[in-house]
Amino acid sequence: MMRGIWDRETVALLMLAAVFPLALTWLLSSGLEGLVRLGFTLVVAGAWHLIFMLARAQPPSFAGALCALAIAVLAPLELGPIPFALGISFGVVMGELAFGGWGRNIVNPATITIAFLGFGFASAPWPQLPVQLGWSVLPAILIGTLFGVMPWRVVAGTVIALAAGSMLAPLPQQQLIAAGVVLVLLVCDPVTAAATPLGRLAHGALYGGLVVIFALNWSAGQPVQIAISAALLAALSAPLLDDIALRIWQARRPRLG
């Protein structure tokens, strides 16, 4: 039988291709330390994918590499290998693999990992993202939305909310960079973002709005911490936004007979 290409692994590979500019920029700026960190997250996440393949016959996915990259870029620094491995294991297993793998999870495993590490090790410093990483967000979004693997409505909603927020009070540059990187790596995940047109716009707007609110009112919050918290709350409310969007759609549908 002839088959189309848009199965799970194609989407995962295209997502990886989309974030490639961002990954390269980050590796160039962070050097050997970043390479070791990325290797560590890849090995731990890959080990769990392997265990679930052998124990539960769950096919591994390239999305695991995407998750490992997001954790390497955004997780708190100076944790030591064992707490870091514990955090990755918690996020990857409880956030993704326990639900049946990528495509069935409800929250991005990287978001869970980073939030878990951030809350669990409150004194660990959050990464400061270099300026060029902020620029690398643009090609990533362009590739992802052109291929249709990243929902463009989420991006549009975020941009609208951030622009509106910047008119109220200008956001610091570090905050905008963090919001952009988190948008590409965590919020634009097609599986856990909202899935209806209106829901996607609302999801993006909620994420952008939360970033603005936290940036203006959370004086002790670090830029990455603020963006991660906003992404986590927005992802948790995505099913609700979808449900509201579907009810609006149903109310406007012709009811006959």
Partner: peptide, 27 residues
């Protein structure tokens, strides 16, 4: 292949187009 059926369907623009934008594709 047997353990993971039905395969998860990732909501992409391709899926939205396959439903013509008329019905909510992913849900």
């Amino acid at each position: 292949k047997g353990a993971s059926r039905p395969m998860p369907i990732i909501p992409t623009a391709a899926l939205d187009h396959a439903f013509g934008g008329i019905l909510p594709a992913a849900p």
